[in-house]
């Protein structure tokens, strides 16, 4: 029996435990979740014995090569919500403001108000758009300050994706500075702040607690 994935994942997340992925049958979540129709494709048991001629149960095909530390390090620059991976370096709001004007304002507007589509606004704490009322009012504009749950996401995203046409061109200290500028412009941190790994980890976004897990499970009813 397979568990219903989305609700099983939901239950596991809520319980804060890890998914025993390889033998999901034993999870305590199983009884709480609806069963997946039996005919659904699953590769859980599609092991090295599944295709005739293969090496057999419990074996590997042993294709591919060991990934060296340097190969992994080249791409492994992601920064997760806790910020444990944040690199050395630091940057101030003032430095970020100057960088923003020269590198970002052409698309995102002076002060981050947004540009011509698809260049989104980055800054805005208009009181009418506070309170996370986005479902109630489709006209409200989402910004980093009134929507984003984690400040670390900003560092990760700027570093991997911006400026749009020259991603990867910023130093880590420049990314800290731009992150600091955008957080200050969104009234999340003071204008005098200098961000480094510890300082960024400590930033708490205003609406962090508003994000909830998916409760749609299929079956009758609208959620």
């Amino acid at each position: 029996m397979r568990r219903h994935l989305s609700s099983a994942a939901l239950v596991l997340l809520a319980a804060g435990c890890n998914s025993p992925a390889a033998d999901g049958d034993q999870s305590p979540a199983a009884s709480a979740a609806p069963a997946v129709p039996a005919a659904l494709a699953t590769f859980e048991r599609y092991d090295a014995a599944a295709v005739p001629g293969g090496p057999g149960p419990g074996k590997r095909y042993a294709l591919g090569t060991a990934a060296s530390t340097s190969v992994i390090a080249r791409w492994n620059t992601d920064v997760g919500a806790q910020g444990t991976e944040l690199p050395p370096g630091k940057g101030s709001v003032g430095e970020g403001s100057a960088l923003y004007t020269s590198l970002c304002a052409s698309c995102h507007g002076v002060g981050g108000v947004g540009g011509i589509a698809p260049n989104p606004p980055l800054v805005g704490r208009d009181s009418s758009a506070e309170g996370f009322r986005f479902a109630r009012d489709p006209q409200l504009t989402k910004t980093i300050g009134n929507y984003w749950p984690y400040a670390t996401t900003l560092f990760d995203y700027i570093k991997r994706a911006m400026p749009l046409a020259t991603p990867g061109s910023l130093t880590d200290s420049q990314v800290y500075a731009l992150t600091a500028y955008l957080l200050a412009a969104n009234q999340v941190i003071a204008d005098t702040t200098t961000l480094d790994a510890d300082a960024l980890r400590a930033v708490r976004m205003p609406y962090r607690d508003r994000f909830v897990r998916d409760d749609r499970t299929g079956g009758p009813g609208v959620r």
């Binding site: 992601d78 984690y150 996401t153 995203y157 409760d215």
Partner: peptide, 20 residues
């Protein structure tokens, strides 16, 4: 990881002032 594509976008505002 809480990437930009699972926070800023591809999240669904709900009544009750939350986002799925």
């Amino acid at each position: 990881w809480m990437t930009r594509w699972e926070t800023s976008v591809y999240t669904d505002p709900l009544l009750g002032d939350t986002a799925r």
